[in-house]
């Protein structure tokens, strides 16, 4: 009997909590409709495409290749990122660079974003700091799979 009473109290408490949320939030919604500005909002929702949340500094977004002063990629086609990539989505084709310092440069550098799992290993592996994932772009959905295959032109920024 005592136990049943306990349940009953909890049931009442449950409905009190939900209705309190309802009325408090409704109050702030109505204030907003009436054009009264309040610090507290009726909902915690961020209306995504119009309002965007700030991306954290360490967030791993779309890759980009860093360029040297003369505009060529910093990458020396060492294949470390290709090797480390768990999704095997980087393809690099090396070519000879006339500059003796560099010796090699990527004539093709392709990342298939559709396969990438955004682990960031490629960034960690690169000895030249040539690839980074700090572009801040997160909405790059495409209509076909080919839209998601990014090559040197698209990556080098």
């Amino acid at each position: 009997m005592i136990k049943a009473l306990g349940y009953f109290i909890e049931i009442i408490r449950g409905i009190v909590i939900t209705s309190r949320h309802f009325f408090v939030n409704m109050f702030f919604h109505i204030l907003k409709v009436l054009g009264i500005k309040t610090k507290r909002k009726g909902a915690v929702t961020i209306q995504y495409p119009e309002q965007k949340k700030e991306i954290a500094a360490r967030h791993r977004s779309l890759h980009r290749l860093m360029a040297r002063e003369d505009g060529k990629p910093r990458c020396v086609a060492c294949m470390l990122c290709v090797t480390v990539c768990p999704s095997e989505c980087i393809y690099v084709e090396a070519a000879e660079d006339p500059d003796l310092e560099m010796q090699k440069y990527p004539s093709k550098f392709i990342i298939d974003i559709g396969r990438c799992c955004f682990c960031g290993f490629c960034v960690e592996a690169c000895p030249e700091d040539a690839i980074r994932m700090d572009s801040g772009e997160i909405d790059f959905a495409g209509y076909t799979r080919d839209d998601l295959v990014y090559d040197l032109d698209k990556l080098l920024r």
Partner: peptide, 10 residues
């Protein structure tokens, strides 16, 4: 709407 308002959504 009601479920949203209860759960602090829109």
């Amino acid at each position: 709407k009601e479920s949203a308002v209860i759960q602090d959504r829109i």
